[in-house]
Amino acid sequence: MSRILQKKVCLLGAFAVGKTSLVSRFVNGIFSDKYLSTMGVKIDRKSLQLDDVTVNMMLWDVHGEESVKKVPAAYMRGSAAYLLVIDGTRSATVDTARELHARMRAEVGDVPFVVLLNKVDLKDEWELSDADVATIREEGWECLMTSACTGENVEAAFIRLADQMIA
């Protein structure tokens, strides 16, 4: 019997890591290299069909975390899953992801999440070394190298998350 699920999915990370671009690539299949700072939360929707389950994702593209502008807990509550986005060209964004992950855990508990090491198309400019990536993986975080620019692994990341939500 087919099922339809409605799930809230948050995208979290430091500012300018590419959250909005990832959603734009996933939902509309487009990419723009122009950076536009997200205010509050940008809402989008996308449905994924996984066998007999339709997952209607409510995508909460949350503004970037900054030292002076923290992500409010109210945005996090009610999330069924989340994507933690890291910018490979800025190693400081790993710490931000860690902090957000801890706060998500406190707010919503042990829900599925996937870590996106974004901007893999700019690998030559990465500050994150292979050893850094290995360390992140050793923490048990499931990581995918993504590029909103080329589309690499973008759909795969959302499908992986949906898979985990229906499991």
Binding site: Q6, K8, I43, R45, M58, R77, G78, S79
Partner: peptide, 25 residues
């Protein structure tokens, strides 16, 4: 209010600057 799926109504809440429509907050 489908975008509020998962939201608990047990406690008061404020969701600031929600962009449901492009450039409308």
């Amino acid at each position: 209010f489908i975008y509020l799926c998962g939201q608990s109504f047990d406690e008061p809440f404020l969701l600031p600057q929600m962009e449901f429509k492009e450039n409308r907050f």
